[in-house]
Design a protein around this nucleic acid. Structure first.
Lengths: 196, 196
DNA sequence: GAACTAATGCAAATTATTTTGCGTTAAGGA
DNA sequence: TCCTTAACGCAAAATAATTTGCATTAGTTC
């Protein structure tokens, strides 16, 4: 039978490969990174990488997803405003750093275009959507009025994403302003407040 | 002296190459397109393409920029609301089509990460920013109150871009709703109205 | 700690990509 | 029309990327 071995050596190889990939991505463009380069810096045979990931794209994508998820955990401040503010700042800081921006762009660049891919593309957006959903659900459970998931996506996440993609700096004040306006719109009753 | 020859044959080669590139991009992922493939479909020698564009990335980028600019011309309806609505619909339709989405992702994927690049990355965003600027300037000259360029970017362009990138469909009603809320915010005085 | 085998490394073979040299075609100006 | 030469096509050479076969290492189970 085929018994998988996630232990010791395998995990070490993956860690080395991901670290090398991240380092290379920090110094040059994704399109200029070859499997050979990653193998060389990681101190690993290129054959191993080919056998495990098939091609550079897959390796880079997997690495980027893993790294991006490590950042921006879900806060719990007790109020929607506090949660959104904290989360917005974290996301902005994570994505607009040089590293975060590169990871994010990798996800978009490598997302397949085909039909089955829609799932793949949403994968990149998905986890954050889930976080938004959780924040809103908690607010509604507390009895607070809250905007819909798509509203938060449109008016908080999207502006941050666009800044990250195009290299426009986004500090805390930018995130704060976005949150302020989102909440103002929600209070003015302009956004749909759909309970889960 | 080196006299450039943009005429006949040169233009034809470029047109054939771009058409082939666009066709290939419609059926497979950008990373799976080789210079050889484009040359083959275009009925052109690969050497010519290498000599002119250097690599596949440059060719695809140049093509995508050209094609994206052909769409979404600047409207002039006489009112800011009308202009924004028309323009928003056009941009949404252009970017969220299968083809437009692929072109747009190419721009982001191939934009260099380095320092000098900031210019390069903004290139993709730039033309639309200019359009926004023009719309707003016209409105202010008519005496209409108008939001700032970054406001339109954040609340109209960014949501559309994010939908395009992640494959979320965006029809006219989505664009219309975004415009409505943007204008509502502007009227409520929440947005900075900075004259040029 | 011995047997089993997934995962790795290494070298050679294979395939794909990119460059180079040179003859040919055709645009642009006289 | 004729001349000049930019842009092209073709074939061969040079590089780079990927695959394959086999020996070796080291988790995992018993």
């Amino acid at each position: 039978m085929a018994t998988p071995r996630p232990g010791g050596r395998t995990a070490r190889t993956k860690a080395q490969a991901f670290e090398a990939a991240a380092a290379l991505l920090a110094e040059r463009d994704a399109a200029d990174i070859a499997m050979t380069d990653i193998a060389g810096r990681a101190g690993v045979a290129a054959t191993s990488l080919y056998r495990r990931w098939g091609d550079v794209r897959s390796l880079l994508t997997e690495m980027a997803v893993e790294r991006l998820m490590e950042d921006s955990p879900l806060p719990d401040t007790g109020s929607l405003e506090g949660d959104l503010r904290t989360w917005g700042r974290t996301v902005a800081q994570s994505l607009c750093s040089r590293e975060g921006s590169a990871f994010f762009r990798i996800l978009i660049a490598t997302a397949p275009t085909e039909d089955a891919d829609r799932v793949g593309r949403i994968t990149a957006l998905g986890p954050r959507i889930q976080q938004i959903y959780d924040l809103i659900t908690r607010a509604l459970e507390r009895g607070e009025p809250a905007p819909g998931v798509m509203d938060v996506t449109d008016y908080l996440l999207a502006p941050i994403y666009v800044r990250a993609l195009f290299g426009v700096p986004a500090d805390q004040s930018v995130a704060d302003r976005l949150v302020d306006r989102l909440l103002a719109m929600a209070k003015a009753g302009q956004l749909v407040s759909a309970p889960p």
